[in-house]
């Protein structure tokens, strides 16, 4: 078994969360995502559950935990749509896995790194959703709108900075 040094990034930056925060934070994100567009329709371009997925994945530094967290959040989101269960689940599961894997190599406390990570993974998720819709569901009418996806990614990365800052307060160093 490989011996890990105490100062490895994984050990140094690995955080945990109170179970209440682990459950409530994604639920609040999903609730806000469902309620805010009723008053502000343009907020549909945001994806707060995606931001929560990325935050928990990069904080825990565990790809498996990231994938499971992303899958559960995605499945919860699927429950509110008219899509079959698994569309958002697969996309967010993969995003959680990739975010946790990237978290080893990136300093997640840096705001620019966080914004870049969210921007990239937001585009990744759009691509995954497109592939799922086309290949798995056979929805040929599903279109990938590059400008719209870019704007969504920018909005997500901008909103992620304050959201990460708030969620940072609930981190517990393992």
């Amino acid at each position: 078994m490989a011996e890990r040094s105490y100062t490895s990034r994984e050990e140094l930056d690995q955080y945990g969360f109170h179970p209440g925060v682990t459950v409530l934070a994604p639920v609040v994100c999903i609730l806000l995502q469902a309620m805010l567009p009723k008053t502000f329709p343009w907020l549909l371009h945001l994806d707060l559950p995606l931001i929560a997925t990325i935050f928990f994945a990069v904080s825990r530094r565990s790809p498996i935990a990231g994938a499971v967290t992303g899958t559960l959040i995605g499945l919860f989101q699927d429950g509110l749509t008219n899509h079959p269960f698994g569309v958002e689940g697969i996309a967010k599961g993969v995003v959680g896995y990739v975010a946790a894997s990237l978290g080893f190599a990136v300093d997640i406390d840096n705001a620019i790194n966080r914004a870049t990570l969210v921007f990239t993974l937001s585009l990744c998720q759009s691509g995954l959703l497109y592939l799922i819709a086309h290949w798995l569901l056979g929805e040929t009418s599903y279109q990938l709108l590059p400008v719209g996806e870019l704007l969504s990614a920018v909005a997500n990365s901008l909103v992620a900075i304050p959201v990460f800052y708030i969620l940072d307060r609930f981190r517990i160093r393992d």
């Binding site: 269960f85 698994g86 599961g93 798995l136």
Partner: peptide
């Protein structure tokens, strides 16, 4: 390969679930 295998398993289960729903 524990991590990628777990991811593959999670995705596979959901793909099968998707196929059954469709």
């Amino acid at each position: 390969l524990k991590n990628p295998l777990v991811l593959i398993a999670i995705v596979l289960v959901q793909v099968i679930a998707l196929a059954m729903q469709v």
